[in-house]
Write a protein that binds this DNA or RNA. Structure first.
Lengths: 141, 141
DNA sequence: TCATTTGATTGACAATGTCAACTATATTCT
DNA sequence: AGAATATAGTTGACATTGTCAATCAAATGA
C-alpha cells in the first residue's frame, strides 16, 4: 500500500502541474491548442527537429503530427527547411512569431516552477531531479 | 536553464511512466480505454464516490464523466447505489467484474513501480515522495 | 537492380473533451 | 413557507485529438 501511495503522490503532482500549465496557457489567449504549444516547445528545444522526432517524442501517430504542423504553418508560427541529408524530410523551425509565443510560454513555465519549488532547497531539488532521472531510465530499460 | 531542465526531467519521467502504464494496460486486452481504467481506479479508492468526485479528480467536464460511467455500467463493471443523503446523486461502486479488472491493473502498477524504483533506496523514495507532495501543495495554493 | 524501409501526407473514422441547455433535488435567504 | 440560487446528473451538438490504412517519394541494403 505504501508503495502504491508513492506512485500516487507522483501522479497527483503531475496532475496538478498539468492543470497549472494548462490554465496559464489559456490565460495567454493565444488561439492555439495545448498540443500545439507542446509541439512548439519541442521544436524550440531541438535543433534540426523533424516530424518524426516530434511523433517519437510525443509518442503519437505521425498523421496527427502532420496535421499539428500544418496548422502551425498556416498560423505562421513555424516553417520548414529542406533537409540536405534527406529529401523526404524537412527541418522545422520557429518563425519570429513562434519564437515570441515561446518566450511567453517559457515565462509562464518559469513562474510555475518558481511557485512549485518555492520552499525547496537546491540540494533537495537536485536529489529529486536525480531520482526522477533514475526512475526514468529504469522504466525505459 | 537548469531550472527548466528540472521541470523537464519530471515531465519526461511522467511521460515514460504513462507510456508504460498504457502499454501494460493494452496487454491485458481488456476492451476498455485507459480513461475508463482511471475512473475504475478512482472509484475503487474512494468509498462513496460520486460522479462529481470523478469530474473533480480528473478535472474533466461532467458530461464526459456521465458518458464514461454509462459505458462502464453497460459493461457491468460498476453500479450505482442510491445516496440516502441526496436524491440527486448516486454512489458508485465496482461490481465483481470491475473488481477483478482492478486487481489485474493493480498488479501491473505494482510491477511498473518495482521496475521504476528497483535501485532506489527506501529513504530516497521517501524523500522523493515528500518533495512531490510539497510541490503539489505549493501548486495548489 | 529490386526489395525493403523510412519520412511525410491524406482520407476516413474513433475516441475524448467541451459547451449549453435542462431536470430534479438541495440549500439559502428572507 | 416560498422564492431565488446552487448542485448532481443527463443529453445533444459540436470541437479537438488520436488512430488506421493507403499512398508517394526518397533512402537503404542485399
Amino acid at each position: 500500500m505504501s508503495d502504491n501511495q508513492s506512485l500516487e503522490g507522483l501522479l497527483q503532482l503531475v496532475h496538478g502541474l498539468k492543470r497549472n500549465l494548462h490554465e496559464q496557457i489559456e490565460q495567454l489567449q493565444l488561439d492555439i491548442a495545448p498540443m500545439h504549444v507542446r509541439v512548439l516547445k519541442i521544436i524550440s528545444r531541438k535543433p534540426q527537429c523533424t516530424a518524426v522526432d516530434i511523433a517519437g517524442y510525443l509518442n503519437r501517430d505521425k498523421a496527427q503530427v502532420t496535421r499539428l504542423l500544418s496548422t502551425l504553418i498556416t498560423q505562421n508560427l513555424i516553417e520548414k527547411r529542406a533537409n540536405p541529408q534527406d529529401k523526404r524530410s524537412q527541418y522545422l523551425q520557429l518563425t519570429a512569431a513562434g519564437q515570441a509565443i515561446m518566450d511567453q510560454v517559457r515565462g509562464l513555465d518559469a513562474n510555475i516552477y518558481r511557485k512549485m519549488t518555492q520552499d525547496i532547497s537546491a540540494k533537495e531539488l537536485q536529489d529529486f531531479e536525480q531520482i526522477a532521472q533514475k526512475m526514468n531510465s529504469n522504466l525505459s530499460s
